[in-house]
Design a protein around this nucleic acid. Structure first.
Lengths: 325, 325
DNA sequence: GCAGATTGGTTGATCGATCAATCAGTGGGG
DNA sequence: CCCCACTGATTGATCGATCAACCAATCTGC
């Protein structure tokens, strides 16, 4: 391992001068900087993060805590985060909270012990991360008061809802996965708000919601709006089993534009998050906090994007005709 | 931040004694150890990783390089790896290689600069990771000579193949995603080997393979065995479009038991990896290498598990009857 | 021509933990 | 009674980079 000392010896200056030349902090002459830089290059010098961290108290590493790395959306966050992070020379240390609130706390502790400079937390649904002694950026949804950045789930809900209303549906079913999740509640909230009085919407939650939704369709509803592509796929399977054609008889929508959404049959109409933007902002906001500054985007949401595919169409048997109000 | 010095002062001993007491290395009396331990506890002492790393040259952090965090299988690896890692007090630093070979090298460099003690690499398909100055554990497939641990993809291929043969299929299609991938080649290899002369199998690769596969079905084949659930889902959509019932007319199988496999209609017969076991072994093997030892399981594969669901059944129109050989 | 500012650079301490070398006691063996 | 072995604990150096303080030389302004 070649250290600053070796370079100093070679060039014939003190280690402090080398440090200054390399980091560009103190006062060093142009030519001296060049000599040191080239020598460092020749030797293939790599600064020791450990030494720097010890002296400065900053490790250049941030921690990422996610509720469950298994959720098909999180990989993308992790990926984008890791890409955004190494643009700013940060390392990303991961921790999985295994879907449990207590593990989330444990994960936070482990990361703090490693000396991370800050944390990015996608909270366990229905929980609030513990207070921590380092800056933290929460990715959740706008209704979370601690939210630093997230997709505009309410707006996303409104997007699909308006699409469904505009193509003529008047009686629909909203299907959520877990009522504890703020994200899913916000999506549903966005839908109902956008519908207003124009559209009649029944809301169901959880696994058993799927069969209720099917009953509602039999009762005359013409569309099922879910809060997740995974739920949409499940509904699709059930509709296949009960011989209700999509989108012929039932229009179906998901959320998050997961990997399988475009290759389902019919391809699923869904709402996509701009994960890249969210990840970039999360890093920016956290970096700003670490530097003791505040970021202009802190607390703001990123718009979602409606992806219309083949699973939605105009209702062939609008509810009103069969069951006039 | 409470350091070893503070404890030493409080208890009235030297820092070295505290260090010895806490790590249990030097010679310290029982009671002194107790006094130091309790005082450390009271103060909420947390050792500084930076200082330790500087002195010992070990950071206790390993790097994880994955080809593309977006692939639905990798999250699970990451999760299990992170869980397995913190059992052994290791941190996991992630890096994404964005599906490109040159980025894979960059990712390796970045992690090395951070001073990781070792690396776990899931190689970009068709590539071999650069030589690195730290221990490395490659997760790929048995036909990769540098493979440290992986699922038995060949055996997995054999599992589905035998299942398909045993329920009576005699003419089938094998559908791979990317021929460059050793993993996928091994899966196909396992299938053909297991079929031997009993079953006639046509092999197709890539995106255009899907339509070839459909043609082959029209030509009398009764099953499509894919190398990925994602491909299977795509095929399923195409079969829906062309009105070929599953499993009535076509039996369909995937690979990896992804999140959507059980909720498709019909639920997909697939082959699951024991990701937990793989992750645990990867960590164990790497830890052993870091300690300069060799691990008994190094280079061995982990068996796969056949998950029979509703997408496979006995052929209703065996190829031989319609097209006798 | 001289105080004061500016430039280029050095010294030495420091961050927190580890470890080899050393030292003060205390028994035991001969 | 003296030397040796052993236990328990201390000293001091060290890892590599950073930073405040200091110093020497040159430049500026009046």
């Amino acid at each position: 391992m070649v250290s600053i000392k070796k370079i100093a010896g070679d060039v014939g200056v003190s280690t402090a001068t080398v440090s200054n030349a390399l980091t560009g902090k103190g006062r060093v002459s142009r030519e001296m900087v060049d000599r040191i830089r080239t020598r460092a290059e020749e030797l293939g010098y790599r600064p020791s993060n450990a030494a720097r961290a010890l002296k400065t108290g900053q490790t250049g590493i941030i921690g990422l805590v996610m509720p469950d790395l298994t959720n098909p959306l999180f990989p993308k966050i992790a990926q984008m985060l890791s890409i955004a992070a190494d643009k700013t020379q940060l390392g990303v240390l991961i921790a999985d909270s295994r879907g449990r609130a207590d593990e989330q706390s444990e994960a936070l502790k482990r990361l703090l012990d490693r000396g991370v400079d800050g944390l990015i937390v996608v909270p366990q649904k229905g929980t609030t991360p513990d207070a921590v002694p380092v800056p933290i950026a929460v990715i959740n949804t706008s209704s979370d008061p601690r939210n630093a950045v997230s997709a505009d789930h309410i707006g996303g809900g409104a997007l699909v809802a308006r699409h469904i209303r505009d193509i003529g549906h008047r009686r629909v079913v909203l299907l959520g996965g877990d009522k504890v999740s703020e994200v899913q509640r916000d999506r549903i909230e966005g839908m109902t708000r956008a519908f207003g009085a124009d559209v009649t919407a029944e809301i169901f939650w959880g696994t058993r919601g799927v069969s209720y939704a099917i009953s509602a369709i039999r009762g005359g509803a013409t569309a099922i709006l879910t809060t997740s592509d995974l739920i949409a796929l499940q509904v699709r399977s059930e509709l296949l089993r009960t011989d209700l054609p999509v989108p012929g008889r039932v229009s179906l929508t998901g959320f998050d534009d997961m990997s399988f959404a475009p290759i389902m049959h019919p391809a699923l109409t869904t709402v996509a998050q701009n994960v890249e933007e969210i990840a970039t902002r999360a890093i920016d906001i956290l970096s700003a906090k670490i530097r003791g500054q505040t970021h202009p985007h802190d607390g703001q949401t990123v718009p979602m994007r409606l992806v219309v595919r083949q699973s939605t169409s105009i209702p062939t048997e609008p509810a009103k005709r069969r069951y006039p109000t």
